[in-house]
Design a binder for these strands. Structure first.
Lengths: 193, 193
DNA sequence: GTCTATAGTGGGATAGAC
DNA sequence: GTCTATCCCACTATAGAC
């Protein structure tokens, strides 16, 4: 994803990410970014046409990581394996409910591990045309596979995104345990009965 | 809700709302707000301590309206009435699925009728302590009543909020019909079978 | 690839007179 | 309740020298 970038550009993106993750989107300014690199702000424009171009790299990086996290969760399979079948080396089809729970946990974990990056990824108009082709679909596939149809996948995605945003923004009552809400939503949205 | 405000302050809030709804949060500056009222920016500070105080009024206004919209949807009852029972004047318990669909439609409609206000209402840290007491609960009650328990209500709220945000941000594939996703999510989250 | 210098724009907010 | 004058801040971005 960042392969087409020069080494210096990659350093800049790395510094931008540190800045973003540590202090949020407002702290990501060209001046501060330059400061962190020990150079002056105008020098950045030799490597990127504008600030948006730097942000696009961060978004692509985040989406790729999220895609990997979801793929890993999908591959893990059910937490509790059925003993005999596994001992026999037979491949057991994963219970969709387990996969769904795993995907939800992975999504939530990624968002909370990188809250500011997650916000950047999901805020404002989406730079679809500037991102690596296929990345968007790749991120969506694990969910589509487990729920079966696109409409249900969209509903489940909206649920997860909504939970994350409401949690991040402190919208739920302070101190509320949200595990049950996640569980209820994920199980309700797995598959049509 | 705005009863404790002076008449002039109410005019300011009204102008702020016009500005916000028309041009978005970035356009809501003290300078532009003053322009619209035919005064200078510093004069605003005789009525509000700072910009955040104006925004809090807008948030309260939006929440009150949303609460009313949801209460209205709840009271409407099932679209298709069961003829005989109604003719006999007997009160028919509304089908939760119908109520849920109505609440979802009302929520979505409000958000799309006032996208910038909705964003302001649901963005960033929540000024809980500055809002009229009970307003938050009141807005949540219709949903809690129809789904039965708080966890399910939170899940349903997250779903609706997520759908709205993803739609507003153009996150779904361009041209996608999202009616089915809304239907799937709302029916899945109504009640435990 | 970096620098200096600088343009251009915009923002929130205060002091003190009227 | 409004004004003028003003402060101080911050940002993106460009031009041109080294």
């Amino acid at each position: 994803m960042a392969d087409r970038l020069s080494p210096r550009a990659r350093q800049i993106v790395a510094a931008a990410r540190e800045l973003l993750e540590k202090d949020g989107a407002d702290a990501l300014t060209m001046r501060r970014l330059a400061d962190r690199l020990g150079i002056r702000a105008p020098s950045l424009y030799k490597h990127f046409p504008d600030k948006a171009a730097v942000e696009v790299e961060l978004i692509a990086e985040g989406m790729e990581e999220l895609a990997r996290a979801l793929e890993a969760a999908e591959a893990t399979g059910p937490a509790k394996a059925t003993g005999p079948a596994e001992a026999a080396g037979r491949v057991e089809a994963a219970d969709p409910a387990d996969v769904m729970a795993g995907l939800g946990a992975a999504y939530r974990a990624y968002a909370f591990a990188h809250p500011h990056l997650y916000r950047l990824m999901s805020a404002g108009p989406f730079p679809r045309d500037l991102l690596p082709p296929g990345l968007e679909d790749r991120t969506a596939m694990p969910l589509v596979r487990v729920v079966g149809d696109p409409d249900r996948a969209r509903a489940a995605w909206a649920f997860a995104h909504g939970m994350v945003m409401l949690e991040l923004d402190g919208r739920f009552p302070p101190g509320a345990d949200l595990g049950p809400a996640w569980r209820v939503g994920l199980t309700a949205l797995v598959r049509p009965v």
